[in-house]
Nucleic acid binder design. Structure first.
Length: 260
DNA sequence: ATGACCTGTTTAACAGGA
């Protein structure tokens, strides 16, 4: 079973690229972030015609997450628990029946946190703590759990083209990386490290400063697995070529194959 | 050249992204 995640940076602007990628990549499940659309305006019919069930947690103009799944959803949960006042659409979770049981998949758009001096950075750290608490709770279910998305965290200095340029950035600050590590420390496995684990493999290249042509990227999109999912991991790959397509997202898909 | 952006909202510039 192929499970992918992709920050598409706007469903309206990326609809052709998304359709093209779904046809060639053929994921069983695709977690999408930054759809920048409310649910009513998300073109679900297009993906339903391609054989997908569609779950959307949308927001006008900003954020917004979705999950496409060839198998139907048993359950869909919109929003990350832990703060009823949080109005940003950044977390969507679904339970899907598979041969021999269920898998639980989340599409995650973790806050960027810049500028660090603003209220956005404490929001990021608080959101990460909520994600840690929720992941801990879900891990107690002892299910195959896949937490996939744009984490907006550069885990190590081998995940960025020039670490010195990012030392003061919310994506690379020690506090951000420690909060990410605290989530891993619950017992989650990062699929990339467990599979490829080559340095300097990126999932994001800024639109500015010729970042793509100079390969000035960062690795911030991650797929974290519970032990029950990690046991079934066969591979993890990054679909780098999509960044060179016409009208690309600034992120590329990252995906896993699970023996499910 | 040492640098050069994109999306949504709205229909001129801004906010937000990373």
């Amino acid at each position: 079973m192929k499970i992918a995640t992709w920050n598409i940076n706007g469903i309206k602007a990326r609809i052709n690229n998304l359709e093209r990628w779904l046809k060639v990549a053929e994921p069983d499940i695709a977690c999408l972030q930054e759809i920048k659309s409310v649910e009513e305006n998300f073109p679900a019919e297009l993906f339903e015609a391609m054989g997908y069930n569609v779950a959307v947690f949308g927001q006008k103009s900003f954020n917004g997450v979705a999950i496409l799944s060839k198998k139907p959803f048993d359950e869909v949960i919109k929003g990350l628990p832990g703060d009823d006042t949080d109005e940003q659409a950044r977390y969507l979770e679904a339970v899907i029946s598979v041969d021999g049981g269920v898998i639980r998949v989340a599409s995650i758009y973790l806050p960027n946190g810049n500028p660090v001096e603003s209220e956005k950075y404490p929001y990021k750290l608080a959101w990460m703590e909520r994600l840690r608490a929720h992941a801990k709770s879900r891990l107690s279910l002892e299910e195959p759990l896949i937490l996939a998305g744009d984490y907006n965290v550069i885990p190590t200095e081998q995940d960025v083209y020039d670490a010195s340029k990012w030392v003061d950035d919310a994506l690379f600050l020690p506090q951000s990386r420690a909060a990410y590590q605290a989530i891993l420390n619950l017992g989650l496995t990062s699929a990339f490290e467990a599979s490829i684990n080559h340095p300097y493999c990126y999932t994001f290249w800024d639109y500015q400063r010729g970042s793509w042509n100079k390969d000035h990227g960062i690795r911030i999109d991650h797929i974290l697995l519970s032990p029950q999912a990690a046991d079934k991991l066969e591979t993890c790959q990054i679909d780098r070529p999509t960044r060179g397509w016409e009208k690309p997202s600034d992120h590329v898909p990252i995906w896993i194959d699970l023996a499910v």
